[in-house]
């Protein structure tokens, strides 16, 4: 069913989206913005700022307290139902009783696609787990599990890809390799990608646009365009203009925190 002419990637519109949890914890302040179709947007912010909640709201895994999410004119459930969404969770969430291959295949089953063993093995190789296809997650390291989760996420060729700290446990060398290889997949398909990360350099290397968030409740404090050409060159992160951009992001982060502390002190 991997059709030769994929449907165009969707744009995502958040309209006054906000989330307050039952205990009264305000995770996301009302947010209105548009994520362009076919581009990679990084959400950068301090730990616990609510960026993961935004991702879950976009996926429709949380119900917003106010506002809404519109994905190419539809609610999140519609794209989920068609199996066109994939999420890489912070926790790899691999099922312990399935092998790596079985876990990747599960995504195809859940997305109601016919299982394609060659596609599965290709992705397992791509994330550097070649030879571990029959291994159960219990026998893998944390980084290997995360890579298996990434393979699972890509195997269904989603139109919308939501990545929540996907490389948190991956070692530096592999992370660089993945940062090289993975974008090719979604670039080729023009997938709309949302990357939640607290790593500034990761955001700079991978994203077309960086939204910097304040501490909780999440509000956008900076919207930074990443003007580098695609495909990104291997040494991009060490180039002066990339370092300068990373500096901008870091100072926006620091500013966001300072502003939040000021407003708390004023209360």
């Amino acid at each position: 069913m991997a059709s030769s002419v994929p449907p165009p990637p969707p744009a995502i519109a958040l309209d006054g989206l906000a989330k307050t949890f039952p205990g009264g914890v305000e995770a996301v302040a009302p947010t209105t913005l548009t994520l362009e179709a076919g581009r990679t947007t990084a959400l950068v912010g301090p730990s616990g700022c609510g960026k993961s909640t935004i991702l879950r709201l976009i996926a429709g895994l949380e119900t917003p307290s106010a506002g809404g999410v519109d994905i190419a004119g539809e609610p999140p459930l519609a794209i989920r139902r068609r199996g066109e969404l994939a999420v890489a969770f912070q926790d790899p969430s691999l099922l312990p009783w399935r092998s790596v291959r079985g876990n990747v295949a599960l995504a195809m089953t859940l997305a109601r696609r016919p299982t394609d063993p060659r596609a599965i093995d290709r992705l397992i190789d791509l994330v550097g787990l070649g030879g571990f296809g029959d291994t159960r997650p219990g026998a893998l390291s944390g980084g290997m599990r995360q890579r298996a989760a990434i393979a699972r996420c890509l195997v269904t060729e989603p139109r919308l890809l939501l990545l929540d700290e996907p490389f948190g446990a991956v070692d530096e060398l592999t992370r660089r390799q993945l940062a090289q290889d993975l974008p090719r997949i979604w670039e080729a398909r023009g997938t709309t990608t949302l990357l939640v990360t607290h790593s500034v350099s990761e955001a700079v290397t991978l994203a077309d646009r960086i939204l910097v968030f304040s501490p909780r409740p999440a509000t956008v404090v900076a919207d930074i365009d990443v003007p580098f050409e695609r495909p990104r060159a291997p040494g991009l992160a060490t180039r002066p203009e990339a370092i300068a951009l990373a500096e901008r992001v870091s100072s926006a982060l620091a500013e966001g925190r300072a502003a939040r502390e000021r407003s708390l002190a004023a209360q």
Binding site: R80, V87, D91, T109, A111
Partner: peptide, 29 residues
């Protein structure tokens, strides 16, 4: 079973039946 397993199922737009079949059944073994 951890809640993220269910999130995984939901992220593909699947409901209780898929939860039961792919996750709960095995978790209950």
């Amino acid at each position: 079973a951890p809640s993220t397993w269910f999130d995984l199922v939901h992220s593909y737009g699947r409901g209780r039946l898929a939860e039961l079949w792919h996750i709960r059944a095995m978790a209950a073994l």
